[in-house]
């Protein structure tokens, strides 16, 4: 029996095929999946901010790209994933609101996406697919078995990356 594991805001979860991982309503946040297709192990993180070092009140380390990916990677390896086989996909990082057509000074969605790319590169994990940016929300569902990431939106349909 396959079940869907829900990943909350600023949280991460790991699982084994045939389970699926899901996170709902990504705006500026990023949903990252890291997976090992051969051993059928995968994890998903719902990242809210780029960097734990820039924040005054740190709190939950799973909110930040740097600290969260570190923890997720550690858990995946503990479960038996092999680091050289790991791949990553991500979605999110939108800019939902703009005032009078002016983009805000801090493009937090864009910065989140950049931070995730950087952290993945640092860990030597190839980012094989991404669907980021835009002005709309996304709900993502990851199939650990196949490595397919389903990205659903309200006005822009659904796609698989």
């Amino acid at each position: 029996m396959s079940k869907t594991i829900m990943v909350g805001m600023g949280d991460y979860k790991v699982g084994k095929a045939p389970d699926r991982l899901m996170t709902a309503g990504l705006g500026s946040c990023i949903g990252v999946c890291i997976y090992d297709l051969f051993s059928h192990i995968g994890g998903m993180a719902h990242i809210m901010l780029p960097n734990s070092r820039e924040s005054k009140a740190t709190g939950n380390p799973a909110k930040y790209a740097d600290t969260c990916l570190e923890m997720l990677l550690e858990d995946l390896l503990k479960m038996g994933a092999v680091k050289s086989r790991l791949k990553a996909k991500m979605a999110g990082g939108a800019q939902m609101f703009s005032f009078g057509g002016k983009p805000p000074i801090l493009k937090i969605g864009e910065r989140n996406a950049e931070a995730v790319c950087q952290e993945l590169a640092k860990a030597g994990i190839p980012l094989v697919a991404a669907d980021t940016g835009g002005t709309f929300g996304r709900t993502i569902n990851f199939d650990i078995q196949t490595g397919d990431l389903h990205v659903r939106t309200i006005n822009y349909g659904e796609k698989v990356i």
């Binding site: 805001m9 709902a24 309503g25 990504l26 705006g27 500026s28 946040c29 809210m48 939108a94 800019q95 939902m96 609101f97 937090i108 969605g109 709309f136 929300g137 996304r138 709900t139 309200i154 006005n155």
Partner: peptide, 9 residues
């Protein structure tokens, strides 16, 4: 749009 997406941004 999605409520979560709007509130998080």
């Amino acid at each position: 749009d999605m409520i979560g997406a709007m509130v998080d941004s």
